[in-house]
Amino acid sequence: MEDCILEFKKVSKSFGKNQVLDSIDLSILKGKITGIIGASGEGKSTILKIIVSFYKPEKGKVYYQGKEVLKIQQKVKKEFGFSIEEGSFYEDLTVVENLTHFGKLYGVPINKLNKRVKGMVYFVGLEKAANILAKNLSLGMKKRLDLACSLIHKPSILVLDEPTADLDPLLRKQFLYLIKKINAHGTTVILTTQIMEEAEEICDQVCILYNEKIIVQGNISEIKKKYNSNNLDQVFKKVFSNKRRKTYQESKEKKSKFEEIKKEIKKEIKAENPWDILEKRIEKDNKEEKYKDDL
């Protein structure tokens, strides 16, 4: 059995009356790239933020290396790197200043920090922009800076929320390459995406979120095999169509019941005076209501 590093058990979360996650179970394998796939608003980012305790689950628990994350927050924060979709760095600091600052906050030793910062700038390809204010960087550069900020303390697990959102295809490819490179160094990666091809290209395992629940989870090749599909897109379509079929079936049943009632009424109309029929129906409804009340 592969080594499970992070585990969600029956986790539920809602914001006010809006339920976002409903009793989800999720396992993240060590050293792998796990993709959480779902449409916008399905709760992908919420899952990631629960991992670092930014949100607390209402029900269920999250375990990191067998321990509940809420009880080992400092450890989780030290060993996790996190990059959110909109980026999280200081716009008024330069690339180097941002990396130095977060390096200090992550507790990188001062004597190693300069070297680490230089290395990270080189790693994400921002050498020429090292002394440029973050607000003056291009979108792709900002994404890379954010990634560098997440990696400055050499985390064991890298969490990326929609890392390639808003990037053009070329930048996306470059970014995915970077993620693969990071993973190749032994870092576990958890990422969210809305793009199936991207997940298929980079991830070892995926989970698909739909209607507050995980509907598919596991190794990509196994999932494809299970749903007899060539790609994840087809898998999703099949899962989705199954869901839709189920919904359609339910609505069809409701429709046929309605047709029956309609026929019955028509029959009655032919046989009797319409006013009598109406009275009878009211009487019948009243009886039914009374019966329900008695119950």
Binding site: V52, F54, K77, F80, F82, I84, E86, G87, S88, F89, Y90, E91, N98, F102, L105, Y106, C149, S150
Partner: peptide, 9 residues
Amino acid sequence: KAYFRNFVT
């Protein structure tokens, strides 16, 4: 924008 990153440090 860096508030979240400060939180996760």
